[in-house]
Amino acid sequence: MSRQGYCPSCGETPLQAFANNMPVADFYCQGCAEQYELKSKKAQLSQIINDGAYATMLARINSDNNPNFFFLTYSKEWQVNNFLIIPKHFFTADIIVKRPPLAPTARRAGWVGCNIDLRQVPESGKVFLVKQQQVLAPEQVKAQFAKTKFLREQNLQARGWTLDVMKCVDQLPNRFSLAEAYSFSDLLKTKHPDNNNIQAKIRQQLQVLRDRGFIEFLGRGQYEKLL
Rank of each mutant, 00 (worst) to 15 (best):
S2M: 11
R3A: 12
P8G: 08
S9N: 12
T13N: 12
T13V: 10
A17F: 04
A19K: 13
M22S: 14
P23T: 08
Q30W: 08
C32T: 03
A33S: 15
L38P: 03
K41D: 12
Q47E: 10
A55Q: 13
N62V: 03
D64E: 14
P67T: 07
F71H: 01
Y74G: 03
S75R: 09
N81M: 12
N81R: 12
I85F: 02
I86M: 09
H89W: 10
T92F: 03
A93Y: 04
D94N: 05
I95K: 00
A109S: 15
A109P: 02
R119S: 15
E123A: 15
G125M: 07
V127R: 01
E139M: 09
Q140H: 11
K147N: 05
F150R: 07
E153P: 04
A158I: 02
R159T: 05
W161K: 05
T162S: 13
V169Y: 00
V169P: 00
N174M: 11
R175G: 11
R175N: 11
F176Y: 06
S183M: 00
S185P: 02
P193C: 02
Q199S: 10
Q199V: 12
Q207H: 12
R210C: 10
R212S: 08
E216H: 13
F217I: 09
L218W: 08
L218N: 08
L218C: 12
Q222E: 13
Q222V: 07
Q222K: 14
